[in-house]
């Protein structure tokens, strides 16, 4: 059974079909990139897989359960327990330090543990910046805090929306290296991007256009380290 299975999903806003009969499967531990131009439906897809939105039609099976039929309360619980989110704009709480931002995710999930949060920051190379506020961190550092926050509760899927969109080349390299490490450790990664270089790092790339899945590219050069 696939970890995630999207079956004939459509999202309709009045006359507009943001997603049109999209189907895909993501296996446990797989790294999948979703590509497409602006307005192709990438963000809608991300929101549906991330349990922040529901499809108008179709099924979204996560661990075999159809999340499309769940209540908003249940979706919140699924988000909390099974999904780690990484955003293009980082979205850190600006009045909390790096370690506190990581602990916020623990707070909603189970129990805040500063030691564990510091270990997560160490994993992304930011232990010495743990007590800094987001305004005292560079963009790359903020994104790494965001990654630490996404990983802290050991989610089944890490969903990243344009994770390198606001980063320079050096920081993009650091973030991609972190993703490779996560993949090696067996984390399931779904990365939404418009950057072909980022997509090339994934095992498989899904291409969306006008809400439809138009192509699926398997990265022949993908190396399992």
């Amino acid at each position: 059974m696939s970890l995630l299975e999207v079956k004939n999903v459509s999202k309709i806003y009045g006359p507009l079909k943001a997603l049109d009969q999209v189907s895909l499967k993501v296996e446990n531990g797989e790294w999948v990139a979703i590509m497409g131009p602006s307005g192709s439906g990438k963000s809608t897809m991300m929101n549906i897989i991330g349990c922040m939105d529901k499809p108008s039609q179709g099924e979204v099976l996560l661990d075999g359960a159809d999340i499309a039929k769940e209540s908003n309360k249940a979706l919140t619980a699924i988000r909390r327990d099974k999904i780690g989110l990484i955003f293009q704009q980082f979205h850190l709480v600006n009045y909390l330090t790096a370690v506190e931002n990581v602990m916020v995710s623990q707070y909603y999930h189970s129990m805040p543990d500063e030691k564990e949060a510091l270990e997560a920051l160490e994993r992304v190379g930011l232990k010495d910046r743990a007590k800094h506020l987001p305004s005292q961190l560079s963009g790359g550092e903020q994104q790494r805090v965001c990654i630490a926050r996404a990983l802290i509760n050991h989610p089944e899927i890490v969903l990243a929306d344009e994770p390198t969109g606001n980063l320079d080349e050096a920081n993009e390299g650091i973030v991609l290296e972190l993703f490779k490490q996560l993949h090696r450790e067996g984390t399931t990664l779904i990365v939404v991007t418009h950057d072909p270089e980022v997509a090339e790092e994934a095992q498989r790339t899904i291409v969306l256009e006008h809400g439809r899945l138009v192509r699926e590219i398997v990265n022949e050069n993908f190396k399992e380290d």
Partner: peptide, 16 residues
């Protein structure tokens, strides 16, 4: 608004 959205995305319930 963004902070509230983030908290909800991280799994904060309405009660939280």
């Amino acid at each position: 608004r963004k902070e509230v959205g983030l908290r909800k995305a991280l799994g904060a319930s309405d009660a939280s």
